[in-house]
Each structure stands twice: as structure tokens, then as C-alpha cells.
């Protein structure tokens, strides 16, 4: 039942034991197996080496492997836990787990904080927020005057930086999200609950057969 192929593919992609991954994440063993199908597809779209390269990530997100995007870069960097320039299967599953509907909100809030803390200083700084607003405007072909951008950033800091020290710390971020829960809506992918339906071919490769 395709065992030779599936074992080979698993070795190449740093395949980790689904039981271990399931025990560490919000996924069931079956869901981890299904994610492997998705991972195989993404990791072979340009370079068939069982690792997700940034170009493959961009291709999946934008249908364009050359599209530069600050936010996609940040997501990629957070998924690439080992910081070796590629996403391995274990990293993929553990990071995607943050987006599972059953994952505690506090994990989602913390992941979003790290995403927006561009320079990893432990704070979201004013300059970082402005840089992200400008990146979003650029991505959306929206043009706003510098005054308007400054006003948006200022207003957000008045709301979020409750200590008034010019930077948002994790505690302020948590309180800000509690008052604005829509900010972490993007941190939940309802689709992840149906992953076994979306990628049913895992059944054919299941280790139960081995």
C-alpha cells in the first residue's frame, strides 16, 4: 500500500512520530497524518526535498513564489523554529496548531505578539507598528498621507500602550486584545478541524498499515 514511497518521503522531510506531535498539539493522530499530506504537497511545489522553502510558502499564500510580503516573512520566520531557512514537518504541525480552534486563546495572543514584534525586542514598538501599517497600505495599493498614518498609529498607541512608555509589552497586548477580540480572529483557522476530510489520502499511507 505505497509503504515504500511513504517511508522514503517521511525520512526526507524530517517526519516525526504523529503520536508525539498529537500529544504536543491540538491535533489528533489522524489529523497529523492528514497534515502530512498537505505538507508533502507544499514542500514539493518547487523543490522536491520535503522541506517548505520560503518560495513555496509564498507560492501557497499568493500563487506567486516571488511575492515579497512583510507579514508572510514574519509567519515563515516563526514557523521556522530552528531558523535554518526552511520549515520541517514537526515545525509545520506545531506552529499550525496555534491556529487550531481548540488551542487556548493565550497561545494565539502570544503568537500574534511575536509576529508583530518585528525586531524581537520583547515589545511592539511605535516604529514597528508604523512599518507594518505602511507595508499593509503598500500591499493593498492604498495611499494615505503620512499625517493620517501617524494619526492611526498614535491613536492605537493611546489605546494599547496603557503604561504610556512608547512601546507595547506582552501584558498590555493581552489587555488590548481582550478589549478588541477581533484582532486575533486571524489566529484561528476553522478549516483545521476538517483537515482529515480535506486530505483523506492519509488513510492510504497510515502507519497502522506498517
Amino acid at each position: 500500500m505505497g509503504c515504500y514511497y511513504s517511508k522514503r518521503a517521511r525520512q526526507e522531510s524530517g517526519y516525526e512520530d504523529p503520536t508525539t506531535l498529537a500529544s504536543e498539539t491540538s491535533f489528533t493522530v489522524n489529523e497529523v497524518e492528514a497534515l502530512f499530506e498537505l505538507f508533502k504537497k507544499l514542500s514539493s511545489s518547487i523543490i522536491d526535498d520535503g522541506l517548505i522553502h520560503k518560495e513555496e510558502f509564498q507560492l501557497a499564500l499568493f500563487r506567486n513564489s516571488n511575492k515579497k510580503n512583510l507579514f508572510a516573512d514574519r509567519v515563515f520566520d516563526l514557523f521556522d523554529v530552528k531558523r535554518n531557512g526552511v520549515i520541517e514537518f514537526g515545525e509545520f504541525v506545531r506552529s499550525l496548531s496555534v491556529f487550531h480552534p481548540n488551542t487556548p486563546e493565550i497561545d494565539k495572543i502570544s503568537f500574534a505578539f511575536r509576529l508583530y514584534d518585528l525586531r524581537q525586542t520583547g515589545f511592539i514598538e511605535r516604529e514597528e507598528l508604523k512599518e507594518m501599517v505602511l507595508a499593509l497600505l503598500n500591499e493593498s495599493d492604498l495611499v494615505l498621507s503620512d499625517d493620517v498614518v501617524e494619526t492611526i498609529v498614535d491613536k492605537t498607541f493611546v489605546d494599547a500602550d496603557s503604561k504610556g512608555d512608547g512601546k507595547i509589552d506582552p501584558e498590555e497586548w493581552k489587555e488590548f486584545v481582550a478589549r478588541n477580540p477581533s484582532l486575533i480572529k486571524i489566529m484561528t483557522l476553522p478549516y483545521l478541524k476538517d483537515i482529515t476530510l480535506a486530505f483523506p489520502s492519509f488513510v492510504l499511507n497510515s502507519e497502522v498499515e506498517d
Partner: peptide
């Protein structure tokens, strides 16, 4: 009265943050 957008609300609309595209077949 003008509504001033929350900067985080604005950036959360980025396509780069919309991971549902990873699941497109």
C-alpha cells in the same frame, strides 16, 4: 466624527496573514 482605524485591525487584513490559502487545492 471621523472614525480612526485601529492599526492592528488594519494590518490583520494582510493577505500574508491569511493562512487559509495554504489549504487551497
Amino acid at each position: 466624527r471621523p472614525v480612526i482605524m485601529n492599526a492592528f485591525e488594519l494590518i490583520s487584513t494582510s493577505q500574508g496573514l491569511n493562512l487559509s490559502n495554504l489549504f487551497e487545492k
